[in-house]
Simulated scan of single mutants.
Amino acid sequence: MGKLKVIQTGPMTTVQDFGRFGYRRYGIPQSGAMDKEWMITANQMVGNPDHFPVVEFAISGIKIEALEDTSIAILGAQVKLNDKELSESYAKLSQGDLIEIAPPAHVYAYIAIGGKLHTKEDFGSYSTYIRAGFGGINGREIGKGDLLKTSGRTGKRQDISPPEKSLENLVGINIMKGPEWDLLKELPSLITFKVDSSSDRMSVRLTGAKLDCDYHEIASSAVIPGIIQLPPDGQPIVLMNDCQTTGGYPRIGKVLKEDMGKLAQLKPGKEIKLVLENS
């Protein structure tokens, strides 16, 4: 168990777990950690089950004070403990310790605390979905003065290395054909796209040469995270964890599940190729 007090943080700092499933028919998005691989690894480092909620943050760093002894793992950002830079992602904290975490090295970074976070559960998940006020800290972003409290015993800590993220100039994202794939007049794999700065937890927007399609709109149809929509401007939109449950743009493809975290961690301006599975 443990208790941490948030001294300073910025926007897009939320509690996330694997997300909520089985409620899309009611218009409720999935939400959940954008990079589940790092979420799982952080939990394992402090001896938590893989599915325990963690703190996900982007854009800015975080400053936290330990109010109780506990353990902590931070993936995706540099950390200072009492003004001394940590050489590893795991640390044991004593009451009064001050943790300063830099902005994420990629897009998202994660904090796991030993024990289970005391947060709000809605529809089977602790994940924060701000638009509806679900989960997390009263359904909102974590802010200055919030307390992050955990309870319960932790399991055996796993001494593992964080999974590395691609530093390549051109990143391949594997996709499968979507329901409206045959409406395309050219293959997406022939084009290099860039990640747009407007990307967020709802979608990753791609810019580059325009894709041409026979129809620019379809009857409103079900969508899920990973679906690639093609709006009239020809610039693909990849739906992410907080996406809506229906949409009216052609669904030309879907990013494979195992590449969703990789895509989420690509900074604006990063070049990608959409690689068709088994092509």
Rank of each mutant, 00 (worst) to 15 (best):
M1A: 04
K5P: 05
V6R: 08
R25D: 06
I28P: 04
P29V: 09
S31G: 10
D35Q: 02
W38F: 10
M45N: 03
V46H: 09
D50P: 08
V54G: 06
S71C: 11
S71D: 14
Q78V: 05
V79R: 00
N82Q: 06
K84V: 11
S89W: 06
A91Y: 04
L93C: 13
L93I: 10
Q95R: 15
D97S: 06
E100H: 11
I101W: 00
P103T: 12
P104W: 01
V107A: 04
A109S: 13
A112N: 01
G115N: 02
H118Y: 15
T119D: 02
K120N: 02
D122N: 12
Y129M: 00
I130K: 07
I130C: 02
I137H: 00
I137Q: 05
N138G: 15
R140A: 10
I142A: 05
K144R: 12
L148N: 00
K149F: 09
G155K: 07
Q158D: 07
E180P: 04
W181M: 02
W181Q: 09
E186F: 08
L187W: 09
P188H: 06
I191L: 12
V195T: 02
V204M: 13
T207F: 15
D214P: 01
E217Q: 14
I218Y: 03
V223E: 03
Q229Y: 14
L230Y: 07
P231A: 08
I237T: 08
I237L: 10
I237Q: 08
T245A: 11
G248P: 04
I252F: 06
L256R: 08
L256K: 14
G261F: 02
K267D: 05
I272S: 01
I272T: 03
